[in-house]
């Protein structure tokens, strides 16, 4: 039995159908047509204690719905969720004492007060002991570099500062599972870096299981070994990033500056060739041809003035996947 067990869960929402315009709105006031959206269809997965899993998919794929079910806000229509031997939505009070949730777009801090006040309230909500609370809070403040920030009213903080406070707030009670719903949305590079390092560290030191949804593939690459890709409410891929790369091509862009004209290339592993003003862009598959082999081959054809090599980002890979599954 794994730590987190999700078996064939489904969730359907009833949504009122309404055309635009005042007339249609008035009409729908009296008589409404409903249609059903299957937000999540038959999703299953297991997660072990201490794992970091990236839960990704395009907008509207069912990520947030799954997080809501995992965190006990919603009960699935069908299927079963068992986490730490509890059923989240049914054992709510007991279960949530042991999880932390950060919704990137929703704040749990008091807008007009310093974050420290919100932390104090959380201390009472989770019924924490004084010494233990002080220890955790000091540790979190240190790791997230919040020294002066927690004294300032939240409304005066920058987005990055606020997000770091949010993350601290979700970990005050030392939960064994942390759900992060788009934790780096809208953050600058430095804040992202602090957040990522912090997540890694928490995972390592406290063995916190972390489930992360994000659209920023750098987050995933930096943090999660395993990803679960969902689209249209179904699991499309579940496995390591490395395996994903092998399976769906590990491409590399090579930008070559040359004055010569290249007529034909017929080497295995070259996916595409594009002419630009002072040279060419090649896309090569490094599972089939290494970069050095490719350059050696190229040197026999033209005089290479300059070379720039870019690995295909995981973003491109995901776009490719979306295309393949037509989501």
């Amino acid at each position: 039995m794994s730590f987190i067990n999700v078996e064939n869960i489904s969730k359907t929402f009833k949504v009122a159908q309404r055309k635009s315009g005042l007339k249609a709105t008035l009409k729908s006031f009296f008589k409404r047509k409903y249609f059903y959206i299957e937000a999540v269809k038959n999703i299953s997965f297991q997660i072990e204690k201490g794992d970091i899993v990236g839960y990704i998919g395009p907008n509207g794929a069912g990520k947030s719905t799954t997080i809501k079910m995992l965190s006990g806000i919603l009960l699935p229509d069908q299927g079963k969720i068992e986490i730490n031997n509890m059923i989240p939505a049914l054992d709510r009070q007991k279960y949530v004492a042991n999880i932390g949730v950060v919704f990137g777009q929703r704040s749990q801090l008091w807008w007009d007060l310093p974050a420290l006040d919100s932390f104090d309230l959380l201390k009472n909500i989770y019924k924490l002991k004084d010494d233990q609370y002080q220890k955790t809070i000091q540790e979190l403040i240190g790791l997230l570099e919040l020294d002066n920030i927690v004294q300032i009213p939240v409304r005066q903080l920058s987005l990055g500062q606020r997000m770091r406070c949010e993350i601290a707030a979700s970990l005050i009670h030392n939960p064994s599972i942390l759900f992060l719903d788009e934790p780096t949305i809208g953050l600058d590079a430095t804040s992202k870096q602090i957040v990522r390092n912090f997540i890694k560290r928490i995972n390592k030191e406290r063995k916190t299981t972390i489930i992360l949804t994000t659209h920023d593939m750098n987050d995933i690459e930096a943090l999660a070994k395993r990803i679960i890709l969902i689209g249209k409410g179904q699991v499309l891929y579940d496995g390591t990033i490395k395996h994903l790369k092998q399976k769906y091509g590990n491409y590399c862009n090579v930008i070559v500056t040359t004055k010569n004209i290249l007529k034909t290339t017929n080497k295995k592993g070259i996916i595409s060739k594009e002419k630009i003003t002072d040279g060419y862009i090649f896309k090569i598959d490094i599972n089939q041809i290494t970069v050095s082999e490719f350059l050696k081959y190229l040197a026999t054809k033209v005089k290479v003035d300059d070379v720039e090599i870019n690995n295909e980002s995981i973003d491109d890979l995901i776009i490719k996947l979306y295309k393949e599954f037509e989501i």
């Binding site: 806000i73 009070q93 949530v96 999880i99 929703r106 909500i125 019924k127």
Partner: peptide
């Protein structure tokens, strides 16, 4: 505004 969901995440009545 969804704040109710946040309340459900706290171990209190």
């Amino acid at each position: 505004n969804g704040s109710f969901d946040l309340l459900l995440l706290r171990p209190q009545k």
